[in-house]
Amino acid sequence: MGIFIQILLVLLTLLGVGIIVYTRNIVHAAYALCLALVGIAGIYVILMSELLAVVQIMLYAGGVVILLAFGVMMTNRLRGDKVISGSNNALIGAIISLSLFSALAYLISNANFRTANIDHNDQIREIGISFLTEHIVAFELIAFVLLVALVGAAYLAKMAGDE
């Protein structure tokens, strides 16, 4: 039962990635990205990272995909034909990415990983405590980066609206 769910999630994500690589319609690619992201969130749950899975659904699938879809729809202004995107040099791109994948696969197959059996209960409490004790500098910096991004995006939107 467990292995069946893992294979199902991996196939779902592969379907999403396949649609992104194959389609020429940007809106369909954004929908397929959402499918791939939800599949990856399911894989995170199997890898016992529950908080990461929920953050992935909330931020990526619920935020970034909406943003992308809005972006596509705004740049096309109700005209349906401009949503198609062509592709350049597909053969050279395929060769480069296949060679990258084979290099990574060679490294993975030659590595020797040690595993251990850790019991994960009550993850959220421990992650919250470690955010405020061990990783507090990164936490505060992230808050600052979010603030800068918020102000920057608002300013850029205002600049566009002044046209």
Binding site: V21, S87, N88
Partner: peptide, 18 residues
Amino acid sequence: AFLFSSGVFVVLTKRSAI
């Protein structure tokens, strides 16, 4: 690794910025 390389493929070949 497969996800990463298909991301590289999409970045290298597609024309539209989004």
